[in-house]
């Protein structure tokens, strides 16, 4: 589905947006999911969100309260891309396991 590997930031943004949330929520979520390893800086996140909206992978959640923070959610296309990436990562992981740890995983 994907042309090439997604960046870690994009992967965690898409993953986070399976549940609609706003920017700050994504930052916290990515950090929690990765055990504190992935910290999305605000500028990077903002740029990625704009690009992903333009690509149609995520969308703004219509919100009656216009003054409030923007909430985003993943689109069907975004979900397909995410699943494609998840499978690709699975392949990487599986091949690594086979060759590093042996076919039966005991080495």
């Amino acid at each position: 589905m994907t042309e090439s590997a997604l960046t870690e930031a994009v992967y965690y943004i898409l993953l986070s947006l399976l549940t609609p949330m706003h920017g700050y929520g994504i930052m916290q979520n990515a950090e929690t999911l990765s055990g504190g390893r992935v910290r999305l800086a605000a500028g990077t996140l903002y740029g990625a969100l704009s690009t992903l909206v333009a690509k149609g992978w995520i969308e703004n959640v219509p919100d009656g309260d216009a003054g409030r923070q923007k909430k985003y959610r993943i689109t069907r296309l975004g979900r397909e891309v995410l699943e494609g990436e998840w499978q690709r990562l699975g392949e990487l992981y599986e091949n690594g396991r086979k060759l590093l740890k042996g076919e039966d995983g005991t080495l």
Partner: peptide, 9 residues
Amino acid sequence: FEVFSDKES
């Protein structure tokens, strides 16, 4: 605190 956290940005 950083504005950018990856190479691309």
